[in-house]
Design a protein around this nucleic acid. Structure first.
Length: 574
RNA sequence: CGGGGUGUAGCGCAGCCAGGUAGCGCACCUGAAUGGGGUUCAGGGGGUCGCCGGUUCGAAUCCGGCCACCCCGACCA
């Protein structure tokens, strides 16, 4: 839908703010508040004011166009969903308290949809009978509700937020791969049209579940996500998922165990210093409580445990460090904990435990450690897996070059769900042979407001927002400097009408304010093209035309200005 | 939920320690001047000092409890 093209500044409900509210720290949050584009309602809940809503709709329409172009069908799923639907897939516990849940007058429990895989699987159950009905791409753009642990950064992370979520239904893995690639390509076009550079990174699937997933991340220091990437080969992954090389198996001969007294030594760093070895010659032990039961994790001392990886491995909903009481209750000694002689507690070892010889480990006895510990000679674990956090400087898993770390905003996420959800919902179809098969699903999300905020994070200067032309609430800022020259007003009114007729989206600053006020607001709002009408240039029959991101204006004749401006905008759009 | 912080006019803040008629800047209203980067002067309106309770002759100020919001962490578009 095309928004009304014009708007008089004096009619706007919002006001610009000279100073940002003190509690806004993120740039996009500050600028969107100052520009009067959003207004806070509650933590993580915002009104989109008219100018912000126009920008929002620009982003939304770009997304919609690209989804349609990729073959997506737009629908609207219910925001209110029966809790039973979530119990069918068991994801009610996976989401846990993040789901807003309410009770109706019959004391029936409903949830405010945090996402819609279940609903779509239900649709598939009803409508998909044959392989001939596949593939399907169906999507919606709708508000999601998530009771986030901590909303933050204005639009960056809200509790009510608009999301475009598309779901692919395919007959098999190959079909899913195809849909997945289709979406990745469509997403790339979306970010391109929003003038937002992104990197595609491997990601953890989190509560959504599924096997493979990627995130589109806008690299910026204000981002919430840590990204590990390789400048040499292009490998990139969210820290939650990132891998790194941990070295080669040791060549040295193993030595006999030897207990050493280590009075007061509680940390790996202290231990390494005390023993005169690098931290990579030590063994670190960490206790976790996984859904209430104790788990013991062992890793080489120079590495950190990645709790997301561990959590996925254990398939648990809640993973946290064990308390001191829990550790002591299990008969272990914090600071000198060790997998040696451990019994009765599930143990997970990182791959790195085999990539080191003659390590220093705890003795499970206060004040003592054991030297020359070797796996698997001296201890066993129940599972060996990659549970280590990658870090900058470590070797790229693909090409061994040193990895780098950076922060970013997750502006899109694609998941290969597979058949997990369709199986529990019972969404199946008959294949060529007449055999019933579960529908293979994928899901693809973009947070519209977050994308908008990410654009501001990238497109701003010390004066305010510098919207890309494709996103700006209006393309043109018509700025008459009235003074006491009545002609300025007449010309400006005439131009306003002309531009409206030419289909130009124009914000008409019809306020009787001083030039400084108007210029500063124009800059703050970030409207790409500014037209100044004043007595000064009017004498030569000209108007001053200036791009937001350029210093110098150009002067164009008032005569036929609308079509000239139109041409400039078309140029800028290409 | 753990850690840190803030609540006084639409926004930014002072006042609180040493209890005694609630202030400043911006914004807003009226009038005048000004007219190319938040211009100037004069006059004016607006506040349950987050909420509840306590101490006191008297509480924005002291004490107790609660709530909200923001920042860091665990969670996610």
């Amino acid at each position: 839908m095309t928004p009304t093209a014009g708007l008089r500044f004096s009619h706007l409900i919002s006001k610009t703010l000279r100073q940002a509210p003190a509690d806004a720290e993120t740039i996009s949050h500050q600028l969107l508040l100052r520009a009067g584009m959003i207004f806070p309602g509650a933590a993580g809940v915002y009104t989109y004011l008219p100018l912000g809503w126009r920008a929002f709709k620009k982003v939304e329409n770009i997304i919609r166009e690209e989804m349609d172009r990729a073959g997506g069908q737009e629908a609207l799923f219910p925001g209110l969903q029966p809790l039973e639907l979530w119990q069918e897939t068991g994801r009610d516990t996976a989401f846990g308290p993040t789901m807003f849940s309410i009770e109706d007058r019959r004391e029936r429990r409903l949830v405010l949809g945090p996402t819609h895989e279940e609903v779509v699987a239900q649709l598939a159950r009803s409508f998909v009978r044959s392989y001939r009905d596949l593939p399907v791409l169906v999507y919606q753009i709708q508000n999601k509700f998530r009771d986030e642990l901590r909303p933050r950064g204005g639009l960056l992370r809200g509790r009510e937020f608009s999301m475009k979520d598309l779901y692919s239904l395919d007959a098999d893995e190959a079909g899913l791969d195809h849909s997945y690639q289709l979406m990745i390509d469509a997403y790339r076009r979306i970010y391109e049209r929003c003038h937002l550079p992104v990197v595609l990174v491997e990601a953890d699937s989190g509560a959504i579940g599924g096997k493979e997933s990627h995130e589109f991340t806008s690299l910026t220091p204000t981002g919430e996500d840590e990204i590990i990437h390789c400048p040499s080969c292009g490998y990139a992954a969210n820290l939650e998922k990132a891998q790194a090389r941990k070295g080669e198996p040791p060549a040295e001969t193993t030595l006999p165990l030897e207990e050493i007294a280590t009075p007061g030594i509680k940390t790996i760093d202290a231990l390494a210093r005390f023993a005169g070895v690098p931290t990579s010659r030590t063994l670190k032990a960490v206790f976790y409580s996984a859904d209430g039961r104790m788990v013991f994790a062992v890793i080489r001392g120079d590495l950190e445990i990645n709790e997301v990886k561990l959590k996925n491995l254990l398939k648990c909903n809640e993973l946290r460090l064990a308390t001191e009481e829990e550790v002591a209750g299990a008969g272990l000694v914090a600071g000198s904990a060790s997998p040696l002689g451990l019994k009765g507690i599930p143990t997970v070892g990182d791959e790195s435990i085999a990539l080191g010889a003659n390590l220093v480990a705890g003795a499970n006895r206060d004040g003592y450690h054991v030297n020359n510990v070797n796996y698997p000679r001296d201890f066993q674990v129940d599972t060996v897996a990659d549970i280590a956090s990658a870090a900058a400087g470590q070797g790229c898993p693909r090409c061994s070059s040193p990895l780098q770390a950076g922060r970013g905003i997750e502006v899109g996420h694609v998941f290969k769900l597979g058949t997990v959800i369709s199986q529990s919902i019972g969404a199946a179809f008959l294949d060529h042979e007449g055999v019933s098969q579960p529908v293979t699903m994928g899901s693809y999300g973009i947070g519209v407001g977050r994308l908008l905020a990410a654009i501001v994070e990238l497109h701003h200067d010390d004066k305010g927002i510098t919207w890309p032309l494709s996103i700006a609430p209006h393309q043109v800022y018509l700025c008459p400097l009235y003074g006491d020259c009545s002609q300025v007003g007449e010309v400006a009114e005439g131009l306003y009408q002309e531009m409206l007729e030419a289909g130009i989206e124009v914000l008409f600053d019809d306020r009787e304010d001083s030039p400084g006020v108007k210029f500063n607001d124009a800059d703050l709002l970030g409207i790409p093209l500014r037209l100044v009408i004043s007595q000064r240039s009017l004498g030569k029959g000209n108007a001053e035309v200036k791009w937001r991101t350029e210093k110098q204006p150009q002067f164009l004749p008032i005569e036929g200005l609308a079509s000239q401006v139109k041409a400039l905008l078309d140029q800028g759009n290409s």
